[in-house]
Design a protein around this nucleic acid. Structure first.
Length: 297
DNA sequence: AAATCGTGGCT
DNA sequence: TAGCCAAGATT
């Protein structure tokens, strides 16, 4: 073994990231003291694939209207879909309402604090469950999202890009977390924030990175990504675009609409009807007795 | 387990 | 401009 000095306990990369967070973190509303686990849960679901800037106003309005799970559970689903607005992936809104109903009826209207129980709720997967347990309940939990996987890929593994999600991700992050409980809890938000603000995907700002001197990727000379390029999803012309247009029509009215009004949003009748069918089967749209279409009641 | 599910800002 | 990218979950 070499005689290189062991890093001081308080100066581990995890500690450095926690200290960096104290001065660099964004002032996001769901991070305010007093924000309860329900509000955290709502923020996490909204933030699944939707940028922070678009979530903020929707989150405030949502919680003003439905301050507890039971409130959301009691709302007409159509109103829930309308309130979701253009956050995207509207099935998340339905799943959030379904999760709220389960919380209200099975958990006394209290968001579960146990990761396994959280994961059993609709729309809550491994990331969101841990995020709620950690951010909402102050538990020491590894929280691994796309930001964290990218930071770990670079800092620990010396790779330019994140590997696809793996079972070892949680262990990688746990290994970085400070020993102290409270600092470990803050570390979970802090690594995410580092990935969101500094260790970003396209043009990492290594010059202002608090752990640049110990980053395996930098130390290796910032090698380019070698694995297979991950292909980004096309959007124009896809069913996703068509579904979005169809739903946008229904969001804009309270009165059910004739099929002809929906025909206007997409010229290909085959794709259009396929998409309408999929919205119906998702429960995002319903057909009335007189064969018009509307958001569910 | 790869494909699918919205939307809009940024480069 | 057209692709890249954003706190994933589900099947």
């Amino acid at each position: 073994m070499s005689t290189a000095p062991a890093p001081l306990p308080g100066d581990s990369p995890g500690d450095v990231v926690v200290d960096w967070y104290a001065s660099a973190a964004r002032d996001l509303p769901w991070r305010q003291p007093g924000v309860d686990a329900w509000a955290v849960l709502v923020s996490e679901v909204m933030l699944q694939q939707t940028p922070v800037a678009r979530v903020e106003p929707a989150w405030r309005a949502w919680l003003a209207r439905w301050p507890s799970p039971a409130d959301l559970a009691a709302a007409p689903t159509g109103e829930v879909i309308r309130a979701w607005g253009k956050l995207g992936y509207p099935r998340r809104a339905m799943r959030l309402q379904a999760a709220a109903a389960a919380i209200a009826t099975d958990h006394g209207n209290v968001v579960p604090s146990d990761v396994a129980t959280l994961e059993s709720l609709p729309g809550i997967g491994t990331y969101t469950a841990r995020a709620v347990a950690c951010f909402g309940y102050g538990q020491r939990q590894p929280v691994v999202d796309t930001n964290v996987r990218r930071v770990v890929a670079r800092l620990v593994h010396g790779r330019a890009e994140a590997l696809p999600a793996r079972a070892t991700d949680l262990a990688d992050v746990e290994a970085l977390a400070p020993a102290d409980h409270d600092r470990a809890v803050r570390f979970s938000v802090a690594v995410m924030e580092l990935g969101a603000l500094v260790c970003v995907a396209r043009t990492p700002r290594c010059g202002s990175c608090p752990v640049r001197t110990v980053c395996a990727w930098r130390l290796a000379g910032s090698p380019a990504h070698d694995g297979p390029p991950r292909r980004v999803q096309r959007f124009a012309g896809t069913d996703r675009q068509v579904r979005g247009r169809l739903l946008d029509v229904l969001r804009g009215t309270t009165e059910p609409v004739e099929a002809a009004q929906l025909d206007a949003v997409w010229s290909d009748p085959v794709q259009r009807s396929r998409c309408l069918d999929s919205l119906l089967s998702d429960g995002l749209v319903v057909q009335t007795d007189d064969d018009r279409f509307a958001l569910p009641s």
